[in-house]
Every structure is written in C-alpha cells, then in structure tokens.
Simulated scan of single mutants.
Amino acid sequence: MNFFAHIDLKPLPMPITHQQKLLLIGSCFTEHIGNNLSDLKFNVLQNPNGILFETESVARSLVSYIQHKQYAAADLFHYNELWQSWDHHSRFSNPSLEAALTAINQSQTEAHHFLKDADWLIITLGSSFVYKLNDAGRFVANCHKAPGQWFTKHLLPIDEQIALLDNTIHQLFHFNPRLKIIFTISPVRHLRDGVVENNRSKARLLETVHHLVNKFDRLFYFPAYELVIDVLRDYRFYDIDLAHPNYAATQFVMDKFSECAFTEETKSLIKTIRQIVTAKNHKAFNPESQQHQAFLKQHYEKAVQLAQEHPYLNLQDELQYFKG
C-alpha cells in the first residue's frame, strides 16, 4: 500500500559537480538549498540582492548583474533611520549611506564576475504578486515595512512573466554561453495573501516556468514545490506558521535533488565531506583532553587527504580548526 504519491524525478542530463560554479537566486527557499550546497563545499553564490520572491525582481536583478550596474545615492531612500534600496533585501540597509552603497556595489560586482563564469543558475520563484511604488511608478523587491498605502499590489499575468524571463534568459545565454538554468517553485505558502490567492499565484509561476523549460534546451525544472505539497502533504512537515517547510521537509527535498543532480561519485564525495564538516561542528566536552586532541589529529589527517585528492574543495576552515 502506497502512502505517498510518486513523482518521476528525471536526472539532469549534465550532472552538477564540485568543480562547477552555482549561482542561486530567489525566495527564502533558495537559501535552504544554497546553504546546504555551501555546507557540502560546492562553489556557491546565493542571492546577491538578498531574498527575492517574484519574477519581476528576479529578472531585473539578473539583468543588473549582466550589466554590472553600480548604484548611486539617488537610487537609495532614507526611511526608519536607514538608507535602503527598493531592489535589495533589508540586510543591505544601513544608517550610513556610504556603507549601504559600498555593500550593494560590492555584491553587484561579485555577482557580475561570478555569473560570467557560472555553470549553473538555480532560480526559485515564490510568488506572482508584485508591489509597485505609487509615487515612483516602479516595482519594488522589498517594501521595507513602509506603509501599505505607498504601494499597489498586483498579480502578474502569465504572459508578462514569460516575457520578462524570456528576455532575461536570452541576455543570460548571450552573456554566458555555457550557462544552464534550473527552475524551482518555492513550497513556502504565502498565506498572508490568502489560501486561494496563494494557489493562483503559484499556478501562474508553474505555467510560466514550464512554458520556458519547454522552449529552451538548457532549462530544467526540479519539483521542489510538488515534493512538499503533493508528496509530503502533511502539516507536520511545516513550521509552526504552517507556511514554511521545516527541517525534515527541506532535507527530504535536498535528498531528492541529490538523486537527480549528482553522480554516484559526487554522492560518495558528499558523504566524506559531510563527515569532515560534522566533525568540525562537534562541540567538545573537554577541549584539552587527550581524547579530543586525538580526535582533532585524526580528522586533520582526513581533511588533508581530502584536500589533496580534491584540490578544488575549499577546506580551509576545517583544516585550521583541526590543526588548532
């Protein structure tokens, strides 16, 4: 008797490896994937603008990386005693205008150079709802807790989302001819929009993404949304807010991603890396004991051997920790 729906997970025709560069952009679920890949020593850059939820902001940000856009003082606004950007998450906000601009432009530069050489771009879309700033008539990526009357909320039609992403993809492939793109839809439920409205929003994202995947041969779809919504299908896999998938759910999704994205050789390497990383995160009861010193020595030797066998892995933190 089956207790879970079955999803046919198609393996990527070109597997992801540790030698490759991966840029991730999109919703908060992007960071679950990105943090996991980073912990496993993949070469990752995630969300250079901070968390982005909807298609318009994702497309605009990617184009800004291609063009190496640099922000000026006129691009920021002062609110709640902070200098902020309508294009960026609040982690870039700062009481100092100069500091905010420096952080934003450094991130823009890093994203420009990383995207130029990236092998994979993973885009996770979270919502079809966009917010337009009434006075300026422009879309915003983050409202920064400004008064609601400053904005007009709008459910972006499918054809507009397709046009935005289609144009962006053409620019991406011209900028980086070897780039491959994986689309996912975030399983985070935007309940503040309403249950019905959230489902309409996700449905538009699904139609948009599948239209594009069917058009371009270097675009792929990974069903993170369906794995949580249709396979797990249970509130015990959500956090207390009933909107965000919990640790068990995100790990389930990552396990399935590993199945279709990595070769057996990469999976074996991941297992070894995870042992090293877990050992580094181990909190010693008595750091000065002979037993702990032997533990450090043993794992230092393992990390050295791993670094020699796979010089493309960044194990500097682990080597420094075990060496003491």
Rank of each mutant, 00 (worst) to 15 (best):
R60A: 03
E259P: 07
T109R: 13
A249Y: 01
E31H: 04
E226F: 02
N134F: 09
Q161R: 01
V253E: 15
K280Q: 12
L24G: 04
E110I: 11
A118K: 00
H211K: 01
D166S: 01
Y238K: 05
T55Y: 00
D159G: 07
W83I: 05
T272A: 09
D255M: 08
K202W: 04
Q149P: 02
N2I: 10
M1Q: 13
N94D: 14
Q19Y: 05
Y300L: 15
P311N: 07
G148D: 14
D234R: 00
K10A: 14
L219H: 02
E265S: 09
L97G: 12
K132M: 15
I33A: 01
L179V: 10
D166N: 01
I181R: 02
Y247W: 05
R236M: 08
N80M: 11
L206T: 08
N142E: 15
H89T: 08
I240P: 00
E197K: 13
P311L: 12
N80Q: 15
K21Y: 07
T208S: 02
Q46S: 11
Q305C: 05
E160Y: 02
N198D: 14
I181F: 03
K215M: 07
T184C: 09
F151K: 09
M1D: 15
H310Q: 15
G26N: 07
V195I: 13
H154L: 14
D135C: 10
I270R: 07
A118T: 05
H299N: 12
K21M: 10
V209P: 01
A248F: 04
L62D: 07
S27R: 00
V63C: 03
S38M: 12
Q251V: 02
I229V: 12
D239A: 10
S64R: 03
Y235T: 13
F173P: 03
D193E: 15
S258F: 11
C260E: 04
A261C: 11
E264A: 08
W150I: 06
K132C: 14
Y221H: 04
I229A: 06
N286S: 08
D166A: 00
I181Q: 01
Y235S: 10
L165K: 00
G34M: 12
D75A: 09
A163H: 05
D75F: 06
P287I: 13
I182K: 01
L296D: 13
H211R: 03
V213R: 02
L37T: 03
Q293T: 09
Y238Q: 13
G194T: 14
I270E: 06
A59L: 00
S61M: 13
F129M: 10
L315E: 08
Y238A: 10
L133M: 15
S128I: 02
I162C: 00
Y247N: 06
H211F: 02
D255L: 09
F29A: 13
S93L: 00
N314R: 13
N214W: 05
P157D: 14
E56N: 14
D239S: 10
A111F: 03
L97F: 04
E160Q: 06
A163S: 12
N43V: 03
I240Q: 15
A294H: 10
N94Q: 05
Q161A: 03
L82F: 09
